[in-house]
Design a protein around this nucleic acid. Structure first.
Lengths: 197, 197
DNA sequence: CCCTGATCTTGCCATTGCCAAGTTTCTTGT
DNA sequence: ACAAGAAACTTGGCAATGGCAAGATCAGGG
């Protein structure tokens, strides 16, 4: 069965569509994404995607969910690769987040845009991502680096800032080194602003 | 000339389109915005908008620019209505920003989304908005409430956080009082984390 | 008074998302 | 092994959209 004479069944259409979609979205923006165009790129008929995604939005939701999976994994790697101290780990995780934002700005936007909250199925993936941050905060409080307080509240503060920074950086206009030091300042401000004692 | 027999020339089409667009966008999201639908609502032919906006994107850009104008004005009012101290003014301005985010979440998203940066013409409007914040920060440093430092850097830190908070709040899922206290915590953290001495 | 430019209209086209019905392949139960 | 059913994919079609072209209408200055 030669690969050129493409078989009736693609075999991996769902993943292929998501890959193509991610490339397209990152290159031309979410609004420009066309299901028919994706189908052409992948080499199937214009209605084939329908078998895997009921909707254009469903495709976007799936893209976002996959993004959360990767983000979560990346954050864990960053955390585990850093030193043992709270500050080091926090810095590493936030840096990982910003790196993700730099490498896949549109995807990140897609993940956190209000539109995607329509699909509840992806909440677990998002929650797992956030859990990395929450756990870290719990450690920070336990270590005494942060004043005692609600971890979730700390998480929201930190998360909102990270997202704002990511959005700012993704919008371009900032030199990479400026961006890095900005993030570093933000983390310092956060730790100092919530220090115990 | 009775108003019902609508004249050939609308007379105020541009503004009418922007108004209708803002309502539509705020109600159904940016992606759903249809130029033809707008034309129907306003009562003109489907190609009439073309005389005022070359593009769908041009319409969105104009919307964003008008939004910046309003935001800037609102922030100034908030600042001038607050007490004389740096902390009070900062709090008032950030609160004004969040209020804007609550009342027009989609518009704010439109204003700060990377898409809009295509049109350089709106940068002045955005800059004027940010100037309010920058000035305030200069005051803070002068008062000794903030450690000496680059006002622009402070501005970026603050701005990114405000945007992240606004985005979080606009995405829903947060009780208003929770949102308010979260914002308050953020401002406190920022001031404490950058306090002089 | 005319005429130039701005405003608006009708008509058109390619593209898109989505749906329906039919075809081909895989799978599963017996 | 084999038939029945499910899953994957195809062709065909529809309504709506954005954008373009050419013409109608109007406003204001020469």
């Amino acid at each position: 069965m030669p690969a050129e004479a493409r078989p009736y069944h693609h075999g991996n259409l769902r993943a292929a569509l998501l890959d193509a979609a991610e490339r397209s979205v990152e290159k031309s923006g979410t609004e420009q994404l066309s299901l028919r165009e994706l189908a052409r790129v992948v080499g199937v008929s214009h209605a084939a995607p329908r078998a895997h995604f009921t909707d254009r939005q469903a495709l976007l939701d799936a893209l976002a969910e996959r993004g959360f999976g990767r983000l979560g994994a990346q954050l864990k790697v960053a955390r585990d690769g850093a030193g043992p101290g709270f500050g080091e780990r926090l810095r590493a995780v936030i840096a990982g987040f910003i790196a993700f934002a730099n490498s896949r700005p549109v995807l990140l936007d897609l993940m956190f845009s209000a539109k995607s909250y329509g699909d509840k199925a992806q909440l677990p993936a998002a929650a797992e991502t956030l859990a990395v941050v929450y756990d870290l905060i719990g450690d920070g409080v336990a270590e005494g680096a942060l004043a005692p307080g609600d971890p979730e509240r700390y998480g929201l503060l930190l998360y909102s800032w990270a997202q704002g920074l990511a959005s700012l950086i993704a919008s371009g206009g900032l030199q990479p080194e400026v961006a890095d030091s900005l993030v570093s300042d933000a983390v310092s401000t956060f730790i100092r602003g919530n220090a115990a004692g």
